[in-house]
Each structure stands twice: as structure tokens, then as C-alpha cells.
């Protein structure tokens, strides 16, 4: 196994172009586990840790540009106001030591349905900035996950950053695991209210071959909130609407039975999380003034 250590982003892109099978490594949360278990034996490891810009973020007007290697700890500490859903999700990642090293780029690169960042990114709305020696492009998060542990990256591309929409309303994230910390998701759910556009977005983790949005549930809720004038009145959401939203969210799942849980449980849990998060976010939307600038 060769270890490539580019000093700059340009060198990294050149190395990836020359060795398209090279596996990029930053925090190593996923890559090192696979190597230690001998599940994977890459010909080249492409170490991105010398490239400082990958660990930087920029808060813009509409979006946060989050470097691929910004550790989860930094997201929790510095981006709670702009990216509340992702900040909550970051706090559920593994242990403090791993949160100090791992970043969203790794979650996206691995594209495991169990990655904790995915539901929050899907709910917030994001674009992945992929780059190669051929140039740069932005991949909408909805089009990024293409299969079980597969993503839309070309063989010569690296993830440079993620452009995530700044919260314009309350966001939530939950995951179910059978331990109260440091646990891989049995399933996860993220919800973001977008009062500016009067829409909601969702994200589901570990309950389908890829991270997915519960689109039918979103459409139902968007319509129900619009029809009932809920955004203007801020009144409590009718329990029947919440129930239907939860049922439709469960319907968006396509889970399996595995050592971590049953398919039936996953559907059930996603429904419970969807209903609770709708309650939490809506309560916050009502309580903190409807013109709020998202905070969690």
C-alpha cells in the first residue's frame, strides 16, 4: 500500500487523477476500520490532512461552505446557529476522540446509509462540491447518493466542501441506537422547517439502501400547512396531520433486517421520530417568533 501525502489541493487532485483507485483519508473514521478489519486493501491511500483549507468553513449570505475535513467537534461548537440539524447530528457521531478527527467529507465519501450527517444535509438542503483536474462541479445532495455505499463522484474527483443552506427555521435530528452514546444508527431522521419558502425537508438514515428524503411526507405536510394557514397563524399542528406525516415518513423507508434491528422496527421508529421532531420544530417556530433566524 502506497501512502500519498499531497501538500496542496492541486497536488491532491493530480494524485487522484494519476491514481483513480486511491482512497482519500482524512479523519479515517471509516477507512481505518475497513483496513483494520481487512475488508479493504487499497493500493493507494491519499492523505488529505496536510491540506489546511479542507478544515476551514465560510459563512456566506445563504449558505455555509463547509470544508470536507472540518471536524464534527468544530461544527458542534461553531455552527450551531447556522446548521442546527447538522450540529445535533455531529454530536451523535461516535466518541469525542473521533468527533475531533472525523468530518462530513468522510461520511459523503463512504456514502453509507448509516452516516450520521446525511439526514441533516438532506433536510437542510446542500450541494457537494466535487473537484478534479478537469474542473469543479456542484452535486445536489439529493442526487449524490446513488446506491449502497456509492455516490456520484467520478473516479478522479475529490470532495472539497459542502455548501449547506443556512437554517431559516428550526431543525432537528435524532437517531436510534441501542446504546445511549457512541452507537451506529439503527435508523435516523432529520427535519428542517424552511419558513422562508414555507416548505419542510426531511432526511432518513439507515432505513433504505441510501440516505433518502421522505418526499411524499414532505409534500403532504407542505400542502397541509399551506391549506390550514399554519405558517401564518402559527397554531398547533393538528394531531391527525402529524400522524399522517409520520406514517408517510415511515412509508419512505425501504429497510432491511440486520444485526442492528428489524425492518419493522426501523419503519416504526422513523415514524415516531418524524412525529416528535415535527412537534419540537413547530413548537420552536411558534415560540421564538416566526421571523426567527434559525437556531436550535
Amino acid at each position: 500500500m502506497d501512502f500519498l501525502r499531497p501538500a496542496t489541493w492541486e497536488e491532491a487532485l493530480a494524485a487522484k487523477a494519476e491514481h483513480p483507485t486511491a482512497v482519500p483519508i482524512a479523519g479515517g473514521t471509516d477507512v481505518m476500520v475497513e483496513i483494520n478489519f481487512d475488508h479493504r486493501r487499497p493500493e493507494y491511500l491519499l492523505d488529505l490532512n496536510r491540506i489546511g483549507e479542507l478544515s476551514a468553513w465560510t459563512v456566506g449570505e445563504e449558505t455555509v461552505e463547509l470544508g470536507a475535513s472540518v471536524p464534527y467537534t468544530r461544527i458542534m461548537e461553531h455552527l450551531r446557529a447556522e446548521l442546527p440539524g447538522l450540529a445535533i447530528a455531529s454530536h451523535t457521531v461516535a466518541s469525542p476522540q473521533i468527533r475531533n478527527r472525523g468530518g462530513v467529507g468522510g461520511n459523503l465519501g463512504t456514502a453509507s446509509p448509516a452516516g450520521d450527517a446525511h439526514p441533516a444535509l438532506l433536510a437542510a438542503g446542500a450541494e457537494v462540491e466535487a473537484e478534479s483536474v478537469r474542473g469543479s462541479r456542484r452535486i445536489p445532495i439529493d442526487a449524490f447518493y446513488t446506491g449502497v455505499k456509492r455516490n456520484a463522484l467520478a473516479a478522479d474527483e475529490l470532495i472539497r466542501s459542502v455548501h449547506i443552506k443556512k437554517a431559516d427555521g428550526p431543525q432537528q435530528f435524532s437517531k436510534v441506537g441501542t446504546r445511549n452514546a457512541m452507537v451506529i444508527a439503527v435508523c435516523a431522521f432529520g427535519l428542517a422547517l424552511h419558513p422562508a419558502t414555507r416548505t419542510v425537508r426531511t432526511g432518513i438514515g439507515s432505513a433504505a439502501p441510501t440516505p433518502v428524503r421522505a418526499r411524499v411526507a414532505e409534500e403532504f405536510l407542505n400542502a397541509a400547512l399551506e391549506e390550514g394557514g399554519f405558517w401564518e397563524s402559527g397554531r398547533i399542528i393538528t394531531p391527525s396531520i402529524a400522524r399522517e406525516f409520520a406514517t408517510l415518513a415511515a412509508g419512505a423507508c425501504n429497510p432491511i433486517d440486520d444485526v442492528r434491528g428489524t425492518a419493522r422496527y426501523r419503519r416504526h421508529a422513523v415514524a415516531v421520530m418524524a412525529r416528535r421532531q415535527l412537534g419540537w420544530t413547530w413548537e420552536q417556530y411558534r415560540g421564538t417568533g416566526r421571523a426567527m433566524e434559525g437556531a436550535a
Binding site: 435530528f173 435524532s174 437517531k175 436510534v176 446504546r179 445511549n180 452507537v183 415516531v272
Partner: peptide
């Protein structure tokens, strides 16, 4: 949430 079932996974704020 640290005092609740689910802990940091933020699954309940007391519901259920």
C-alpha cells in the same frame, strides 16, 4: 438528553 433514553441521540425530550 443525557438523562433520557437515547441520550445524545436526541430521540425524546420526555415523550413516551
Amino acid at each position: 438528553v443525557r438523562a433520557l433514553p437515547g441520550g445524545l441521540s436526541n430521540t425524546t425530550h420526555g415523550e413516551g
